[in-house]
Simulated scan of single mutants.
Amino acid sequence: MTGDLKIEGYASLFWTRDLNDDVTAAGAFAQSLAAGAPVTMLHQHDEAEPIGVWDEVFEDAKGLFVRGRILRTTPRGTLVAALVEAGALDGLSIGFRQIKARQDGSLRVLKRVELWEVSVVTFPMLPGARLSVVSDQP
Rank of each mutant, 00 (worst) to 15 (best):
R72P: 07
I99Y: 02
L19S: 13
A101G: 03
S132R: 15
P50L: 06
L71F: 11
L33F: 04
I99H: 12
A82T: 12
V80M: 13
G68K: 01
R67L: 02
T40V: 14
V53W: 00
M1C: 04
L126C: 01
R17P: 00
T122E: 09
L131P: 14
R97E: 11
F58D: 05
L83V: 05
V113R: 10
A30K: 12
I94C: 10
M125D: 04
M1Q: 07
R112C: 00
T78Y: 04
L131A: 10
E49V: 03
V39H: 03
A101I: 01
E49F: 12
T16N: 07
W54I: 03
E114M: 08
D55E: 14
A61D: 12
P50Y: 12
D60Y: 09
Q31W: 08
N20F: 12
V120R: 04
V39R: 02
F96V: 06
F123R: 09
Q31D: 14
V53A: 12
D18F: 03
R69P: 01
S32M: 09
V109I: 15
S12P: 05
Q103R: 10
A35V: 04
G9T: 06
L71C: 14
R112E: 15
L5P: 11
V80I: 15
V113I: 15
A34Q: 13
L71P: 01
P50Q: 08
L42Y: 09
G27P: 14
F14T: 09
I94L: 00
L89D: 08
P127N: 00
W116A: 15
V120P: 01
A81S: 09
F14E: 05
R76I: 13
A35C: 08
A26T: 13
E56D: 14
K62E: 04
L64K: 02
L13A: 02
I51D: 11
R102H: 13
I94A: 04
P138T: 06
S93W: 11
R97W: 02
D90F: 13
L33H: 05
H45Y: 06
D18G: 03
D104K: 09
V109S: 04
D55A: 13
A48K: 09
A25H: 10
F65N: 11
H45V: 10
T40A: 04
G27D: 11
A82L: 07
D21C: 10
G128S: 04
Y10E: 04
Q137A: 13
S119F: 08
T40M: 02
A30C: 12
L19Y: 06
L107G: 01
K62G: 01
A25P: 08
F123K: 10
P50T: 08
R67E: 10
A101D: 05
P138V: 10
D136M: 03
E117Y: 12
G68Q: 07
D90W: 10
G9F: 05
L115P: 08
I94P: 00
P127W: 03
P124H: 07
V109N: 06
Q44N: 04
E56R: 13
M125E: 01
L64P: 02
A86M: 11
Q31F: 06
A28P: 13
V109E: 10
Q31M: 07
G63F: 10
I70T: 11
M125F: 02
D55G: 15
